[in-house]
C-alpha cells in the first residue's frame, strides 16, 4: 500500500515508516500540514495517516481540504488528542478511523490493513461466506457446514464484524469500538469471553477452526492455511 504519513515528530514518523515498511507498505512522510496537503493532492495514495497537531496546517483542516477537493482516500488520524470529543471531531472532519498515541504497533498495523481493504464504496452484500460458514446479512441467519447456528445479538455482531474483515487481524480495541460501542478499555475480559462463546458455537466440533487468536495483536477469521 502507498501510504502518506503527515507527522511532525521525526521519531514517531521514523518508527511508523520503518514498522509499516516491514509490513510491506510503502510509506512517505511529510513533516508539516501544508507540505502534507500538497503531497496528498499531487499523487495517488491508498491511505493517509495524519497527526492532529501539525505545523503549517492542522490535521483536521488538512483532511477537510482533501474531502472538499473530492479526495476519498481513507484517512487514519494518529494523535495524542484523546479527548472524547476529539475522536468525534476527527471523524466528522472526514477521518475514517482514529487512533490515539501512545499506541501498540499491532493496533496500527491492523487498522491500516482494515482501512486499506475497505471497498471504495460500501457494497451492499447480502451474504458473506468463509469456507463453510455462511452469514445472511439481511435475515441475520448463520449456518456452519449447512447447519443453522443460534447466536445472541452481540455474538452475531461480533461474527459479522470478523467476517467483514476476514483474513485481517482485528484488535481488541477495534472490536470494543465497533461491536459494543465501548470507547474505553474495560478492566475485564469482555472481548475474550464473547470470542470464547462464539468459538464454542461456530468452531466446536468442526474440522476447520475459523476464529484464530493472533498473539499480541487480536483475532482473525480465516480459513487455516
Amino acid at each position: 500500500m502507498r501510504i502518506l504519513l503527515v507527522e511532525d515528530d521525526t521519531q514517531t514518523a521514523d518508527y511508523v515508516r520503518r514498522g509499516l515498511g516491514e509490513e510491506g507498505h510503502n510509506v512517505a512522510v511529510s513533516g508539516d500540514g501544508k507540505d502534507g496537503l500538497l503531497n496528498a493532492m499531487g499523487e495517488a495514495w491508498d491511505l493517509f495517516i495524519v497527526d492532529r497537531m501539525l505545523p503549517g496546517l492542522d490535521g483536521l483542516s488538512l483532511v477537510r481540504s482533501l474531502r472538499a477537493a473530492g479526495d476519498c482516500t481513507p484517512v487514519l488520524f494518529l494523535t495524542t488528542m484523546d479527548g472524547i470529543d476529539d475522536r468525534v471531531d476527527g471523524l466528522n472532519a472526514g477521518g475514517d478511523d482514529y487512533l490515539t498515541k501512545p499506541f501498540a504497533f499491532a493496533e496500527l498495523v491492523a487498522r491500516v490493513a482494515a482501512l486499506g481493504r475497505r471497498p471504495p464504496q460500501a457494497r451492499s452484500e447480502a451474504r458473506l461466506k468463509i469456507a463453510d460458514l455462511e452469514i445472511d446479512l439481511l435475515s441475520r441467519r448463520v449456518r456452519r457446514a449447512g447447519h443453522p447456528v443460534e447466536l445472541q445479538p452481540q455474538e452475531y455482531r461480533l461474527l459479522e464484524y470478523l467476517a467483514r474483515h476476514a483474513n485481517q487481524v482485528v484488535t481488541r480495541t477495534m472490536l470494543l469500538e465497533n461491536v459494543w460501542d465501548f470507547h474505553f478499555d474495560p478492566r475485564t475480559n469482555v472481548v475474550e469471553s464473547h470470542i470464547s462463546r462464539l468459538r464454542s458455537k461456530i468452531d466446536r466440533g468442526q474440522e476447520q477452526e475459523l476464529i484464530h487468536t493472533v498473539r499480541g495483536a487480536g483475532y482473525c477469521l480465516r480459513v487455516p492455511a
Binding site: Q152, Q154, W180, T188, V190, S193, S196
Partner: peptide
C-alpha cells in the same frame, strides 16, 4: 449483555 459472559 456485554458483561454477561464475563460474569458467567
Amino acid at each position: 449483555a456485554a458483561y454477561e459472559p464475563v460474569a458467567a
